[in-house]
Design a protein around this nucleic acid. Structure first.
Lengths: 399, 399
DNA sequence: ACACTTATTTTGTCTATTGGAAAAAGTGCA
DNA sequence: TGCACTTTTTCCAATAGACAAAATAAGTGT
């Protein structure tokens, strides 16, 4: 049954309006009080009073005057992204990035600490300590942490991460007790798709999928403008889409899972098999002759060098992905599908091939309607993801 | 960009609270004022005043007293579902059902008019006229219309229906002009999944899929407690999930679409082909020896009679469906998947086979966690669907 | 310089919620 | 049976936020 929303009082309406006004300034600023009032259907009085509060908080500043349209010049209001900071932490399998960022996801200072083989409790302690050392002065609005693996975002608990040996770690609680700062936790892929929507090129997409192609393949899903997590945070297991009923058995119980054809672990297994069978590939040379040393980078470089095996595998990847994506398009009809992750980032040829394949396969794949697109965020996108999570929380209209 | 919510005033809060209180009485009634106040965190005064208004409107009535717990006995409040009616219209390909229903989707009076070969404008005129004749007295809260095919629910326009020759018909506008009553329009499958959630056995499902297996296969999708329609209402094309890359070509451009293996049109084509090749089946006898006369019912009956061909086709259906459903489970991880439509309704063996198959294929198909379930609404479920659409609208908490 | 515009602020009104008191209707024990 | 205590419901005055109207500020255009 639908949870009945909680009743609210006068104070709530003020907060609601203040939040709307702040977001209007954030997204449409510089803007005058009068224009906000018109845009949001509020009385000028209400806007004046809310803006007064926002200026007192330092979140908004008057910044010059606009053009007159026959009367008094409007006083323009501007959002002040540096009035507060958020601490963003992107936990990876090999390193932890940590940054102080402003309210527009701009980096103020950054630091990376190695995981250094730490796992489980030791890793958590290490993390808590590092954060404590990282904090200076105050003016922090909160902390945001992203972790790969299964995350219970609602309760702030890392449910499970194989490689980091984390199981049911109540990170949110631990961090809040230690720092007294509001803390958000989210899965890394979810965070990144939020970042693409709020700080990348996909602002207008109500329904957005981010397909992350690394060792395995996962998806971050935004539907109706907010993250979709499924029943127990189990949504987005895109890598286990079966694209071939009689394909390779997967340890998920099914056969022909997409991951085996388009994820790095699957690809790597095939590369090894080919090499074992005596096939020649530049990937081996690039890895210094050691098959165990081949990395995704070697694959991408070999691709650019025109390596035949790499080509072949790319083709397979594209076909496999296009089948899975076509199915998603039919079911969800999203505004866009983003291809990201180590094997897709900067791999334009994969994108081209996938789109071509989908155009053939799918009703929705109309000519000039390219739906599968590249990630738009470069650089510290993992940190931008963490920032997106907490900033979305901070600026969310209540109710 | 996220649409910023509209600003609100005092009147809004009153409506909001009234709506919350009404829904509390609807779902948890009979209930006392005090209990509502506690449950919703409202002051007793506020509840009293809202209840006063609701009683004046006739939506709520005092109905006896409850048990005392040491003080004054509570006066219980009860929802009055018969205080208003809604007109529900389920347009089908062969007939149009029309009913006056109360605020709990109970039928007060009903009528079915045949489509009788009417199409396009003629059909629409016929429909408008029939509704006008159907209306008696007043006390109507609105009209709800469901139509198969592509529907733009937001604007109340039937975009496209092949068989009824409808294209861009602004039904909502036409009906509202004619009757002066608020009118909702929705796709039939979407309406039915809403009905399963609000008036069936799936009340607790936040994320729910209804797979409708008729001529083709479509899906109605509820995510986070409300209908998901995709970019242009194009979501739910489940029948065009490709389950076999080298399968039968489909006019959607892809190959091996689920529809061909599990939808009636696909099944029928296969049955004809088998008969043509001389295969013996009881379906032919049931249809009086005329292959063109075979209907889904004949298939279902033959199945119960142990017909070999029907068995074979059922097995294929189950396998095909399970592949498609497994993919959905991996991506959306819903609370439940409902199998409905002519070929699934009452077809328990299909359900059993699909579940068995999924248990093998899928991580999520854990033992006692049967996710694929039968439709729970019997009888006039198409009308219940229409009712669900408008009642959900009427009782929705604003904001 | 004067009439008209537009933007912002001030002032007073309106209204839904609310806390607390009062009323209504009980319970339970001596 | 009477009296003290509870619980539910209603009444009342206070509060606070939105708002309309008026006032003020700062223009434009002729």
């Amino acid at each position: 049954m639908v949870a009945i929303k909680r009743a609210k009082n006068l104070k709530f309406i003020q907060e609601w309006n203040r939040s709307i006004i702040l977001n209007t300034i954030r997204h449409s600023g510089p803007i005058s009080r009068m224009e906000i009032a018109k845009k949001q259907g509020l009385s000028p009085t209400t806007v004046t009073s809310a803006v007064h509060d926002l200026m007192e908080m330092g979140l908004v500043k008057e910044s010059g005057v606009g053009k007159s349209s026959g009367g008094r010049k409007p006083i323009l209001l501007q959002f002040q992204p540096d009035s507060l900071s958020v601490i963003c932490i992107a936990v990876g399998h090999t390193s932890i990035s940590m940054a102080e960022m402003n309210l527009e996801a701009g980096v103020k200072q950054k630091r990376t600490v190695p995981v250094g083989g730490r796992t489980g409790e030791e890793l958590v302690d290490h993390l808590l300590q590092s954060v404590e050392l990282f904090l200076r002065s105050d003016g922090y609005a909160g902390i945001s942490i992203t972790v790969p693996g299964i995350v219970d975002a609602e309760n702030g608990i890392v449910r499970y991460n194989e490689r980091l040996k984390l199981r049911d770690v109540p990170i949110k609680k631990l961090m809040e007790e230690r720092t007294q700062l509001q803390t958000c936790l989210e899965n890394d892929t979810n965070a990144i798709v939020l970042a693409e929507k709020y700080y990348g090129s996909y602002k207008d997409c109500e329904n957005l999928l981010y397909i992350m192609i690394d060792d395995g393949i996962g998806a971050g899903i935004i539907l109706r403008d907010s993250l979709y997590r499924g029943r127990n945070g189990g949504a987005g297991e895109f890598g286990h889409t079966s694209i071939d009923r009689s394909g390779i058995p997967c340890n998920c119980g099914n056969r022909g899972c997409l991951e085996h054809y388009a994820g790095w672990l699957g690809l790597y297994a095939r590369i090894l098999a080919y090499i074992h069978r005596g096939r020649i590939t530049q990937m081996l040379e690039l890895a210094g002759g050691d098959p165990m040393a081949i990395t995704p980078d070697h694959f991408l470089i070999a691709l650019n060098l025109g390596d035949e095996l790499a080509e072949e595998l790319l083709e397979e990847m594209a076909v496999a992905l296009s089948v899975g994506i076509s199915n998603i398009l039919n079911i969800l009809d999203p505004d866009a599908v983003i291809l990201g992750g180590e094997l897709a980032q900067g791999n334009e040829r994969l994108l081209t091939k996938v789109n071509a394949q989908i155009a053939v396969e799918n009703i929705h794949g109309a000519k000039d309607d390219i739906l599968v697109l590249p990630a738009s965020l470069k650089g510290d996108y993992a940190l931008t993801g963490a920032a997106a999570v907490i900033l979305q929380e901070i600026f969310r209209v209540p109710g």
